[in-house]
């Protein structure tokens, strides 16, 4: 396969995560995600494109919490894609796993086949209180009920940056204002999340990948043994004091 210009991806430094949930909130407001009320949450139908999983280790008082932010891994060989009967999800030429809401008919096949469990289904028509209706992001579709949705790497921001670049006649997307970053990356106070183009050798993510891969690096991929080739790399120093058992 010829090398595309862009292959968007993320590097997540788990060692830095403090589970402040800023990314979750930023994502909710950027992407018009419906409010997860207590009721919806108890129905287990909450939608959160990025979630911070929290694992407890040990018993009180010797207790440790570990966090890991999980979002769509934009797999190179995504299991969710081929099972969709109507091409509602496919791999685009920028290396992203995209969801086309119009085509989706809601078989939920993709959600079953996602080992990371990051695809969300609109069981109900989304609703916002009147006070929040004006804060909906005009760049993002409001999804109706009966379709799947998931993290898009804030594709609207990438598109906007590209349009601005072409309007100004620039070859490359300049990113001083970090406008191309997904909302979660910009919101993270500890710089846990890095976003960028893996095909650009000078990007921060490529640098991190180069540095952290290999025998002594901290880099790893989630569920690597499934061969899904995620575009998200996690960094984590192996903690020798970690115990085998952990629970949510």
């Amino acid at each position: 396969m010829s090398k595309e210009k862009e292959k968007w991806g993320m590097v997540i430094d788990v060692d830095k995560c403090i589970s402040c949930q800023a990314c979750v909130v930023a994502c909710q407001s950027e992407n018009n995600i419906p409010i997860n009320s207590e009721d919806i949450f108890n129905q287990r139908r909450a939608i959160e494109w990025i979630r911070v999983e929290r694992y407890w280790e040990g018993e009180f008082p010797d207790v440790k919490a570990r966090f890991i932010p999980i979002l769509c891994q934009h797999c190179g060989e995504a299991p969710c894609e081929p099972v969709c009967p109507v091409f509602a999800t496919y791999h685009n030429e920028e290396g992203m796993n995209v969801q086309v809401y119009n085509r989706c008919i809601g078989t939920r096949f993709c959600a079953n086949n996602c080992p990371y469990h990051v695809r969300y289904f609109n069981f109900w028509e989304p609703e916002w209180p009147d006070s929040l209706k004006n804060q909906l992001n005009p760049d993002v579709t409001v999804r109706s009920r009966g379709i799947m949705e998931k993290c898009t790497f804030c594709i609207q921001r990438i598109r906007r940056s590209k349009i601005e670049a072409s309007r100004d006649g620039r070859e490359e997307v300049q990113d001083e204002a970090r406008s191309i970053n997904p909302a979660c990356v910009n919101a993270c106070p500890t710089e846990t999340l890095y976003f960028g183009n893996f095909n650009d050798e000078n990007s921060k993510v490529s640098e991190l990948k180069k540095k952290e891969n290999g025998d002594h690096g901290r880099g790893y991929k989630l569920l690597d043994e499934l061969g899904t080739e995620p575009n998200v790399i996690y960094l984590k120093k192996v903690d020798p004091s970690a115990k085998e058992e952990a629970h949510a």
Binding site: Q43, R44, R45, A46, G106, R108, H117, Y120, F121, N122, F123, W124, E125, R145, G146
Partner: peptide
């Protein structure tokens, strides 16, 4: 919507 069933995430 499908919410009326017992299906969940």
């Amino acid at each position: 919507g499908v919410g009326v069933t017992g299906l969940n995430r």
